[in-house]
Design a binder for these strands. Structure first.
Lengths: 197, 197, 197, 197
DNA sequence: AGTTAAACGAGACGGTACGTCACGTCTTGAA
DNA sequence: TTCAAGACGTGACGTACCGTCTCGTTTAACT
């Protein structure tokens, strides 16, 4: 067994999309958002930090928002799993606590907040955010809730979507206003809104 | 022969601050936000629209965010009055419905949403927004709620601030995500979170 | 007899240089120069127009200037023949008129003007242009003139190279400045500069 | 008490055009053209070298060609004076020698050659060059020649414009091809083309 | 009544980032 | 080995706004 790969360096892409460049961009955007904030997040800075040409970014992403969405989607899948099994009030409480931790403690949570914010400034962002993130996620959450209702585990007074907004809204709002999210808040929301009176 | 003002023009101020210019800036900012969105709201565009020199803006406002805050504060006082008299579950319900209408229907509501958004991108905005708007307003809301609790009109399970977030959060969240706010949502929030089980 | 060459297409070369590709590049460059001007002549446009990969161009030509030189040389040989027989004042006059027509009327004349121009901007172009075109051509012209002098047909007051510049310079200069070249100009140049006083 | 003005610094423009910036741009363009050649002359490099913002250049000049034209016109007036008095064959000879020296020895001469070149690549340049430089200059030269003809000092066989092209063309052509311009060439052109046979 | 000082419109200035274009180099996979 | 295809790092393009800075004018308040 001789030598083998003396200088690995970078694989240099050639004809195909360069996966290393893709990841470098996603990580650079994530890092810069956390370090410098969205207001200082520029495409040029991402390119600089990622060691990538600006054109490489524009070739694959129509805007920095889509970069963040890509990161957000990948990270959410890894770090904020949906409930797939039997759903109870208790497991929903666990999901909401996980979501609160995600929003306030995880870098990806900052991305979500930044995108919700940017969606207020730019209709294109709003559309992408709904189509690629909020919509699909909401579909899974609604499913989760409906399964619990059908099983008789919970009995909300509102339709499923309004119920989810009533549960998630306070968590998001406190995150947006920089407040912490005490577990007692989540407990009471679940108790008051989901359980029979 | 008196003749009198051939060209009235504008009553050029001279030594004192020009109130007409101040109002022109506030209205220009408001109009542009509604027409073009925050993303297209620039100081240069405000100056252009207001017929004012850029320097006149920078002389009186440190940033466009403060312009919007000025407008927001004035408009909120006019169009979203606080409860000053006896507070009941019913009057809180009315206040929340008014707040929902303000957020989704009033141009000033768009300003508040834009500022909450911008606060995610820029710490200075966050500080100003809390100090000049969210903080004072929250003080009044807390007062309002405490008066109702003391009078035995409502009995929330959470401390006052968390209670208000639980009531207001879903409304803000639906406004941020572009959903309408059905009155049934407000009714149920009040019933489930404020009234005794 | 079945099938047989279903798609003749292009006789894709495989191992050897593809002559069709070479010609496609030369013609594309020529056409684009005439249609769009040198300022809009890019390697990418040539490749696009020729239906050829960019790398195929870079494999065979160090720069777009060399492409144009190849075209220019081929076209000059075809369309601007040198005098090979006996040379007289009259035949030199004919050569100069042909040169004037070439410069102002022939697409290849535009190439020569473009290359003389580009040589002012880039030393590499200047070197190539002299080595591959102007130098050899000047050698033939000098020969032509010297033969006429030796035969007593003409008697210029200047050395051969300066004489040729004095004859050719006005023609090139008028072409460069977009003027036409009246035959009277050529006649007078020959009469005043070549014939005895 | 003499002294005064402790820190002159830069006058900082304010409302009016900044003359220092204008001159810095003209000189930077001139210097860069001579040092690096037209091919390496970019607006960004001019701005960098002049210590000026790119926008300041675009505010006043539509292209780098116009910058060079400004420099060329100013320098030509200073360093290549027209004949204003009585014109003779001898004074025309002097003018042509001065022109030859200007073209080959003066930095501004390089600018003229570069602009003649660029005019081949871009029609806008051609138009500007003619309107702002070649045209007016030619008017003066024609005047000069006609005065000499009317005074009986010279008797060209061609119309004035063609005569000037016949005199100037060889000089420009040799400059374009990088040759020197021996004074004998000018002498012979004047003798053969302007003096009676 | 004459002087002073602030506010105003206008807009030039040095900057940063935008999104696009073409450069010349590289790699893949088919012929 | 050549070719079509096309991704890549590089760097300039011309534009939009940023926030700062005079300039010359206007006018209220203070000598």
């Amino acid at each position: 067994m001789p030598a083998a790969n003396s200088q690995p360096r970078r694989a240099r892409s050639g004809n195909r999309r360069d996966e290393a460049a893709r990841l470098a961009v996603l990580h650079a955007a994530d890092d810069l958002l956390v370090e410098r904030g969205f207001g200082n997040l520029t495409v040029e800075a991402i390119a600089r930090r990622a060691g990538v040409a600006k054109q490489t970014i524009y070739r694959w992403w129509p805007s920095k928002v889509e970069i963040l969405l890509d990161t957000l989607i990948e990270d959410t899948e890894k770090r904020l799993p949906m409930l797939t099994e039997r759903t109870t009030a208790e497991s929903i409480r666990g999901y909401l606590l996980g979501f609160a931790r995600f929003l306030t403690g995880d870098p990806a949570g900052k991305i979500l907040l930044a995108l919700i914010a940017e969606a207020q400034h730019d209709p294109g962002t709003a559309e992408s955010l709904h189509k690629r993130y909020l919509g699909p996620r909401r579909d899974q959450e609604r499913d989760m809730l409906v399964r619990a209702i059908d099983a008789g585990e919970v009995s909300p007074r509102l339709d499923p979507d309004a119920t989810i907004d009533a549960l998630v809204g306070p968590i998001v709002y406190r995150a947006l206003t920089g407040s912490s999210i005490p577990s007692g808040l989540v407990d009471t929301l679940v108790a008051d809104l989901l359980l029979p009176r």
